[in-house]
Amino acid sequence: MSPSSKDRLLVWVLRACAGLSGAIVLLIAVFLVLESLPALRNVGFARFFSDPSWHPARYAADGAYNLAPMLAGTLLAMAGAVALATPLGFCAALFCHFYAPPGLARACRRLIELLAGIPSVVYGFWGLVTLVPLLNKVQPPGASLLAGILILALMILPTIALMADGALANVPAEYLRGAAALGLSRSATIVGVVFPAAKSGLFTGVILETGRAAGETMALLMVCGNVVQVPKSLFDPMRTLTANIALEMGYALGDHRSALFVSGLVLLALIVALAAAAEWLSKGRVYE
């Protein structure tokens, strides 16, 4: 084999690898759509929001397929966790950059990296054995939207902090020196100079973590109580879309199974929309 034909073979092998890796997303979309089709055909899209309840059955005519309470559960837990974790994560990043002495800042970053690596099932386990009993003392049953929000916030906090840390590190040093030369106080520098300059990086991080919060399964499955209902208060149990898939996939058949793939498809659409938003935001950088 001459060297050039060997090269050509190599390039084709590499192209096949890259093509296959790139095609996985398409494969996922295709398989989700294919498996959702029976439910979309037999149940119809409208019934996923208008049916009286979620009592799925093997044949569409026998069941009720309202996904709305679980979609609400996913969105509520996501919104609560992001609202709680964002300011705390930003504070942790500010701490590492502007407040902590260098040694402490390094230790703090290490700790955050360590926490970002703890698996969700471990956070869920801690929530189940420690947090839920505590909340149960305040207001039974304990397993609730609030427990879900707290655990989810803890889970996404380290990554928000790491991304905010990266965004703050990208603020040009001249800006900080300029602010110091103008005699700005530290809080005025942070609010008036650092945040605007790091805006797009901070937003991108938050949006990516919003996606992770929407897709989180195990922790929410373990602490939310899994009752299918729109929670009326923070202390009501509820079920998310992801938990619903994890709970019912094992025994679901026919249109029920297919309906679970529909909820997967809804999740995927939500994530793709968030990723597009993050992409669009990170293009509008204020500095550079």
Partner: peptide, 14 residues
């Protein structure tokens, strides 16, 4: 990039 953001439960379904 999109693949990196796909939730794990969706990987499970797939």
């Amino acid at each position: 990039d999109v693949l990196a953001g796909v939730p794990s439960i969706v990987f499970g379904l797939f």
